[in-house]
């Protein structure tokens, strides 16, 4: 069984549930009203997909504005980034757009982008439509899922989809993929495209 290490970071507005998603993924637990993250926290978790084990090294960053300048430290060299917004807060989706723009500009060329519309268990408070978000994700060639850290909906799937989108070059040692060398092929897995994988049809 082959083993791949994947550096991944979570970005997004404060209070959208980045830490909750990570905690759900890593320990499969959920705590309501988790305290806000200070700086960034680091966790790792191994996921086995199709006989390959993927060791995720996850940087869970703090969403507050004052930490914004530190973000490059985490997404630089990351193979994937999950940008999270809160479906019940329109403003968090605007912040997400800023992040996507920044990642496209300064992130690694082959970085796998994923957009998570979190808190999809709170349908009655929804402010961001699934359609709009998935269209945006498609435009930006990003994975899109609506998730709920509370109910665990789509959380593991999100990480599985990321493993499928990783360019094969990531099999090489991390240093080489990060060196800015030319990436000739970007494998896009069909199953990862947005629309059909959202929380509510």
């Amino acid at each position: 069984m082959s083993m791949r290490e994947i550096k991944l970071c979570l970005l997004g507005d404060s209070g959208v549930g980045k830490s909750s998603l990570v905690v759900r993924f890593v320990t499969d637990t959920f705590t309501a009203n988790l305290e806000s993250t200070i700086g960034a926290s680091f966790m790792s978790k191994t996921l086995v997909v199709n006989d390959t084990s993927y060791k995720f090294q996850i940087w869970d960053t703090a969403g507050q504005e004052k930490y914004r300048g530190l973000a490059p430290m985490y997404y630089r060299g990351a193979a994937a980034a999950i940008v999270v917004y809160d479906i019940t807060r329109e403003g968090s989706f605007q912040t997400l757009k800023d992040w996507i723009r920044e990642l496209k500009q300064y992130g690694a060329d082959n970085i796998v982008l994923a957009i998570a519309g979190n808190k999809c268990d709170m349908e009655d408070l929804r402010e961001v439509s699934t359609r709009m978000a998935s269209d945006y994700a498609e435009e930006n060639n990003a994975i899109f899922l609506e998730t709920s850290a509370k109910t665990a909906h789509n959380v593991a799937q999100m990480f599985t989809l990321i493993t499928q989108r990783l360019p094969s070059e990531s099999l090489l040692p991390q240093g080489l993929t990060d060196s800015g060398s030319i990436q000739l092929q970007k494998r896009v897995s069909a199953s990862a495209s947005g629309k059909k994988s959202c929380c509510k049809q």
Binding site: S19, V23, L34, E35, S36, T37, I38, G39, A40, S41, F42, M43, D60, A62, L70
Partner: peptide, 17 residues
């Protein structure tokens, strides 16, 4: 005070300025 005020360090290793 940093350590005392927050439980968010208890779950994982953290890195903060």
């Amino acid at each position: 005070n940093l350590v005392d005020a927050s439980t968010s360090f208890q779950s994982a290793e953290s890195w903060t300025p």
